[in-house]
Design a protein around this nucleic acid. Structure first.
Lengths: 259, 259
DNA sequence: TAGATTGTTAATCGATTAACAATC
DNA sequence: TAGATTGTTAATCGATTAACAATC
């Protein structure tokens, strides 16, 4: 349940304000989800609410924390102490939720020996030893992309079974190992994608208002553009592009053509 | 389409190896998705493949880049130049994809005037001016959680319509404004959640193998625990907790009880 | 032509949500 | 009791995927 942390945060806020109980409606609003969904989620954890009253805030905080494993101690290694590794080592949200930075590792001799967040940066050679002796099961990779898979392999080999990957690479891992990827460029690309659709698409041949239409219309518009030889489409080996424009009903573009 | 950046990365790798064409099967494997899904995704962009051959790599790279808006210049402001803001300012993936850091902003006079990634850190007072004059439409928030909503409001007011939020807060924005949240603690919590289910749950009363069973069984197990008065359940104002254990067919736990 | 692979349909699956009986 | 709110069902929605006709 990827929504549990969301609920937990909202509940923690209520707890700090000493709110004793909360209804599914209120909590759902605070967490930004549908109240039926929230009730269903909670019902999977067991039925912790009271009809006519709502949910006991403290009790729910405890149950969700336990369900998420936040009542345990999770030693974590961070590999690659560049800017991002530094930032993560200092990240406040770690310690408060049971995540303990067991070690910072880097391959660069110039970085090894320096200090980040009060911890010494140690050399990659110590990876296996640290993972084994400190029972580390979660690894955070903040290396350059080229080194990520190699680091991942070593972590897995040493016994790590969960990896948080910040390098822009798809990691290959054996079954039983979880990988979660945080990719800043992907997040920004998605924003740019939506941004582009917002403030007035420029009215060029290849990027018209047609692109905002539903699927079939957009596909038809794309065919039109290629038929017109716009952009790189002209380079493509399309045998009879112009003839394709008016074959079946699906290809009849008169309804979507500007007058 | 949140998968386009994924495809683009796989295609870029192929492009660098000068691979001319790729089948949906191959590309899907590289991107880690189902090939039918990939073909469907591409069909929404227009039909850029050739039956019996596959997709032209270069052409697809171009089309997806254009679709994502990566052929444009996107000025971005980063607000909150702590460790994370620093890391982002230096993040290589930005510039290479058309994202240009227009300004770094911070409220702390001790930080203002310093340099990060070759750019001067400027004071929050300049926010509105920078957004307007540089036509910034994307803002990145790396402030402490308490300041995030306020910063967000100012960004939106000034004209920003896309926000990448690293602060652990749910931001409220008007319609037409996109927010994407990157929350490191949530990612780690999800890993810990799965991690907990993996290497042998300890056989305590409140955290048994029953928790791995399908929904109904787990709910029943949870009821059992409460009926048994385990954990904080005893503190709860449950009128007749013990009596609840054997009321209807749903509450019959004999089928899931250990012998 | 024969083999390969797309584009698309239709089936499947899972997630979301409205609605309401159960019950505090 | 009357009002409120949960827990859960059933309907809805959207996303995924197998399958295959179209066609290179």
């Amino acid at each position: 349940m990827a929504r549990l942390p969301l609920y937990l945060r909202a509940l923690t806020a209520l707890s700090e304000r000493s709110v004793p109980t909360v209804s599914s409606e209120e909590l759902a609003a605070a967490a930004g989800v549908n109240s039926a969904k929230l009730r269903k989620d909670f019902s999977y954890l067991g039925s912790y609410g009271t009809r006519g009253v709502g949910y006991d805030v403290e009790y729910l905080v405890y149950q969700i924390s336990r369900e998420l494993g936040l009542t345990q101690d999770w030693p974590v290694v961070i590999v690659g102490i560049g800017n991002l590794g530094h930032a993560l080592a200092n990240y406040g949200g770690f310690a408060s939720r049971g995540f303990r930075v067991a070690a910072l590792l880097d391959a660069d001799p110039n970085v090894v020996g320096s200090t980040a967040a009060g911890l010494p940066v140690r050399h990659m050679d110590e990876l296996e030893d640290i993972v084994v002796t400190q029972h580390v099961s979660i690894g955070v990779i903040t290396t350059p992309p080229g080194a990520a898979q190699q680091v991942c392999d070593r972590l897995v080999e040493a016994g790590v079974t969960s990896i948080l990957n910040f390098a822009p690479t798809v990691l290959t891992v054996p079954d039983g190992v979880d990988v979660r990827k945080v990719d800043l460029s992907i997040e920004l690309q998605i924003l740019a994608f939506h941004e582009q659709r917002k403030a007035g698409d420029e009215p060029s041949a290849g990027d018209s208002v047609l692109d905002r239409a539903p699927g079939p219309v957009r596909a038809a518009a794309a065919k039109l553009r290629r038929a017109a030889g716009g952009g790189k489409a002209a380079d493509q080996a399309k045998s009879t592009p112009a003839a394709k424009g008016a074959k079946g009903p699906d290809d009849d573009l008169s309804a979507v053509m500007p007058a």
